[in-house]
Simulated scan of single mutants.
Amino acid sequence: MRIISGETQFHIEDKTAVAIGKFDGVHMGHQKLLRHILDKKEQGMKATIFTFDPPPAVFFANMADAGKPAEAKSSDSKKSAMLTQLLTKDEKRRKFEALGIDILVEFPMNAETAHTMPEDFVRNILSDRMNAAYIAAGDDLSYGYKGRGDFSLLNKLAPELGYRTHAIKKLQMFGRDVSSSFIKEEILSAEMERAAELLGEIYYVGGVVAHGKKLGRTIGFPTVNLLPPDEKCLPPYGVYFSEVRVDDRKYHGMTNIGLRPTVSNNGQVSVETYIYDFDGDLYGKYLEIALLTFHRKEQKFASVEVLQRQLDLDLEAGRNYFSYE
């Protein structure tokens, strides 16, 4: 997959089938949209995604925060959580490549590009630089300065610029439009099963295994540790039963998300996972921790010994959970 990132001056030679969107989570609604451009590969077009980096909501939130005193920034924790991403940039790239996307354009969102007039966006970016022959997006598409561009403008310019358009209606599930905001609500409520249905897959945290203090090994509880970036949307701190994916294999796991208050005071959020029936070295490897279900809240125990007794109970509960899969 070719990635064009951070560039405004580029040109794609091949005819492209372009999907426009944020694609946070690549949820069931996004997958419906992406099928339309992937189908066009049979007609010789390159399946191409256009998205902004950072996402517009994040860019404008940062702009609004600029100049505010530190204590006033992101004071609404719920609002801040909703600005996190279901997929990090790395996770999203891996996802697109696995789906068969040919070209990913991560167009820079900044003060200059945010002032692009809608018609200039269509002519100069979608037509001239991206060589679009087919453009698909949600029927609520907006683009250009203050979001003034819409599908009617796309359709108006289509005969002149030589592309076709397709407006995709919002997918509905559980009586609501499927959206990243809806999915984040479920994740922030630890409703991992509902989030999985909306996403079309189990919600996961991906990353390279980091070195920890290795305290778990001293109490018979070795773990692998991921340090998620700040922009990653995480469910409430606690213990989750999980699926661990590494080297094209899957294992059962038990994952603690949080600050590990009994053994650490450094404030670092970690995703720490015990892998059932596994004995190997995973340091430096990329893996994904898919969060199947919530088990219990994170808590601080009186001692490491009390923590160990609780972990033994958690491990047994996990074995019972997986026996019923």
Results as ranks from 00 to 15, higher is better:
Gly220Lys: 08
Arg129Asn: 00
Glu185Gly: 11
Glu91Cys: 12
Tyr321Cys: 05
Ile49Asp: 01
Ile37Asp: 07
Tyr237Lys: 12
Arg123Val: 12
Gly44Trp: 01
Pro54Tyr: 10
Gly220Phe: 07
Lys285Phe: 07
Gly6Asp: 09
Asn155Ala: 07
Glu13Gln: 14
Thr84Lys: 15
Ile101Phe: 01
Glu316Arg: 09
Gly200Asn: 09
Thr262Phe: 09
Phe10Gln: 06
Asp128Tyr: 07
Asn320His: 13
Phe322Asn: 08
Pro108Ile: 00
Asp247Met: 09
His295Arg: 10
Leu291Asn: 08
Arg123Asn: 08
Thr84Leu: 10
Thr8Asp: 02
Phe59Gln: 08
Lys79Pro: 00
Leu141Lys: 01
Ala290Asn: 01
Val271His: 06
Asp279Trp: 03
Gly207Gln: 06
His166Met: 13
Thr293Ser: 09
Gly258Thr: 08
Thr48Glu: 00
Glu193Gly: 00
Glu305Thr: 15
Glu91Pro: 11
Pro55Lys: 10
Phe50Cys: 07
Leu282Phe: 10
Ala98Asp: 14
Ser323Gln: 14
Arg217Ser: 13
Asp90Pro: 00
Met254Pro: 11
Ala17Ile: 03
Ser75Ala: 13
Thr16Ile: 02
Lys68Glu: 05
Gly175Phe: 08
Ala290Phe: 02
Phe301Gln: 01
Asp128Thr: 02
Ala66Gly: 00
Pro54Met: 08
Ser264Glu: 14
Lys40Gln: 14
Ala66Val: 00
Tyr251Phe: 15
Lys213Asp: 15
Ala72Ser: 11
Val26Lys: 13
Lys89Pro: 12
Pro56Gly: 11
Glu71Asn: 09
Leu87Met: 15
Met117Leu: 15
Tyr276Asp: 07
Leu38Glu: 04
Arg148Val: 04
Tyr286Ser: 07
Ile49Ser: 08
Phe294Leu: 01
Thr165His: 01
Gln43Pro: 00
Ile135Val: 13
Ile187Lys: 11
Gly147Pro: 05
Leu259Phe: 11
Tyr276Met: 04
Ala167Val: 11
Gln43Arg: 13
Ala98Arg: 13
Gly216His: 05
Leu38Thr: 04
Arg35Trp: 03
Ala61Ser: 12
Tyr286Ile: 05
Asp230Thr: 14
Val306Ile: 15
Ala111Pro: 00
Lys46Leu: 12
Val224Met: 03
Val209Glu: 02
Phe52Met: 14
Tyr145Glu: 10
Leu86Met: 14
Asp90Cys: 04
Ser181Glu: 08
Ala81Val: 03
Gln172Lys: 15
Glu193Leu: 09
